[in-house]
Design a protein around this nucleic acid. Structure first.
Lengths: 218, 218
DNA sequence: ATTATATTCAAGAAAAGTATTGAATTATTG
DNA sequence: CAATAATTCAATACTTTTCTTGAATATAAT
């Protein structure tokens, strides 16, 4: 293999990886799987995809070493291949949100619409978490909370939010988080709670970002 | 805009960025531009692309905020948009080379073929650079050296290598570098020099990686 | 002004990616 | 062992990306 062939092989391989990432549905699947493993059915339930189509997308991700799978009974459970990939994915998101003007604008509009513009960063959360008067709510489905959650967080799926929160004082500062910067569950929580008069903000990031940060600080 | 629309808008935008990156020629162009600005002609000269085709690829990169351009006389000079992108690009390369088995294998084979398997890492270089007996060679074209180079490096374009090196002692340890992990100029240098009996290794990375590392350590 | 040069534009053909449909496969359950 | 359920496979139509070709544009030099 000469120099030109070597370069071509490397760039072709690299482009293949990026092609696997360059589809909106596959990106959404990646975000889903960053919350923990999911069956094909599980992926279908939280997207607009048909079963066959979701399966195809998952195979593209698998063939490009982005996800792995294990079989149990009828089900095939997919999960992200490793934390190195998760870290890369988050780098991409972070770059896109801060450098692509259009995305930055869309994100800001969403936050404004939900009165969640005053989002708290992970770094800031760390310095607040020791404060007893801060209540950290994980508003994802409880299955995702069980796979892993930010230390000290209480599981409070958005569906149970209004009924479960009756007991809490309005003096407490509430911080809600979910899957990441694109996840709207925390926005919904902020909107619902602020309408009821609670002091509430969302976390800018989500559980996966916290997890990567934890593992990097060890 | 409801939650579903917001998510779709964000993932569509993200996929658009990744689509712009998911072409081998555009990746090669990005590597070229990470050495400093280049005209369309300059890009064409170091790839297999036609002028019109290179221009099209450059426009895709520009429309996706990956490169920027300035006009001077007949020429339009393109360069990477900022160091945040360069850092992201390098993260992608690093991930691909260490986690995609096929790419890792191809890279190793290339290094083996050129007797450059014992590559030196940037970290290691830093601790060696104070050693007077180490000679650091920048084997890129001199125009790229002039745009920027690793501190302490000597410009030694591969074309002038054999004639210029006559004066150097074979006791000195030589380290050659070029554009990055996929760049074959350093491999060529290692092969040529080791055949002549010099003690020579290549740097695993290249100038852009050094540059990003410098700016991060400030 | 005319000519030359670098780049971009526009249109069409070829190649690759995507969604849909229904059948096939694999493992579990009765 | 037949029936059921989750997933995958295969074929097709549709869309998008890519390369090629030749013309158009813009700037500099004569």
């Amino acid at each position: 293999m000469n120099g030109r062939e070597f370069k071509d092989a490397m760039y072709d391989g690299l482009a293949k990886l990026l092609k696997a990432l360059s589809n909106p549905y596959r990106l959404e699947i990646i975000e889903m799987l960053s919350q923990g493993e999911k069956s094909v059915e599980g992926v279908v339930n939280s997207t607009n995809l048909t079963v066959a189509n979701a399966s195809q997308h998952l195979q593209v991700l698998k063939n490009n070493y982005i996800v792995k799978s294990r079989k149990e009974g009828h089900y095939v459970y997919y999960s992200l291949i490793n934390d190195e990939f998760l870290s890369l994915y988050q780098h991409i998101i972070k770059y896109a949100v801060s450098e692509i003007a259009e995305l930055e604008k869309t994100l800001n509009q969403q936050r404004k619409d939900n009165k969640s513009l005053n989002a708290v960063s992970l770094d800031k959360l760390n310095s607040m978490i020791h404060d007893e008067s801060v209540l950290l709510l994980d508003v994802r489905p409880s299955i995702e909370y069980e796979f892993g959650h930010i230390m000290g967080a209480i599981s409070m799926p958005i569906s149970e939010l209004m009924s479960k929160l009756k007991g809490f004082s309005k003096d407490k500062e509430i911080i809600a988080y979910c899957r990441g910067p694109f996840c709207v569950l925390a926005d919904d929580a902020v909107r619902l709670l602020s309408e009821k008069g609670y002091k509430v903000r969302r976390l800018d990031e989500g559980y996966p970002e916290w997890k990567v940060k934890q593992s990097e600080s060890i």
